[in-house]
Nucleic acid binder design. Structure first.
Lengths: 148, 148
DNA sequence: TTCCTATACTTAACTTGTTAACGAAAACAC
DNA sequence: GTGTTTTCGTTAACAAGTTAAGTATAGGAA
């Protein structure tokens, strides 16, 4: 007899937990690939986002990579030391950082991408490309849910 | 000219990032509710999972709440001090912990559940109940993706 | 100009995520 | 039964998540 007055939707039905479980199932395959290339998930997000643009402010990078500003501040130091990205001051606005992907960052992306695409292909093969597409569509829409 | 030899699926198409973004959009609404009740997301997962069963091993709890064993070890201390859960040794197997939801944990669930359900209802209203159901179905299926 | 507010990070403090290694107890050989 | 292998949980070490506060610069109002 554990049921409280208000029956909470049981945890299996919780949308946040369903998202978490699905993400974990997928990342369990991606993580070893990235580890083989000496980076973690967050660094991979950062350099990939950065590679799509020639340069970017730290704030925009944080937003696009879904990384909080304090985390990015800490990561930048390590990424620069590894030679994966480059930082410069924005001459027009002294508050801003101008971040750029470095050659070594591009090389890392080039070398990890085939394995990464293979994992994505494995997922598609198992899950069905239609399901993947539809899931992505629903996720993109849900991501627009306004924060209050 | 940033494109490497192998064009990586751009980040907008990355399934892990889409899952992350969607989860963040949803959690941005749940987090304030939980904060108002003095707990964080992970603690909320733990006590809810625990409330569904009368007692549970730490390992099973960790699995169901999607929390890694080392994290749970750390959390247990705080949860016991707050009186939300209770811990006992398993007499039949000295390795195992027997975890139970405490009265204060049930009370917390009862008091936070209405607001939590309201957020879920807001999501359904905005996203469409059909979409929510379909999304949950796809996520559940994807969660079965085998880890190698 | 001066002052007020907003923006772009940074720092700090604490919690959780992640991996690896460790200790103790159970299960399974033989 | 002794020895080996699993399983359960803990500890350790470092990175990232989260919130709040702080610093410097920019923008705008007066």
């Amino acid at each position: 007899m554990t049921a409280p007055t208000q029956t909470p939707g049981d945890t299996q039905k919780s949308l946040p937990m369903a998202l978490l479980r699905a993400r974990e199932a997928v990342m369990a395959r991606f993580r070893p690939v990235l580890a083989r290339h000496g980076i973690n998930e967050q660094q991979w997000r950062v350099i990939r986002v950065l590679a799509e643009m020639d340069t970017m402010d730290a704030t925009e990078l944080a937003t696009r990579a879904n990384i909080l500003a304090p985390s990015l501040t800490r990561m930048i130091k390590a990424l620069v030391e590894q030679g994966l990205i480059a930082v410069a001051k924005n001459p027009a606005d002294a508050r801003r950082l101008t971040l750029t992907i470095a050659p070594r960052g591009l090389a890392l992306i080039a070398s990890a991408t085939p394995e990464s695409l293979q994992v994505a292909a494995d997922i598609d093969a198992w899950f069905g490309a239609d399901n993947t597409a539809q899931l992505r569509h629903l996720l993109d829409r849900l991501s627009q849910f306004p924060p209050d």
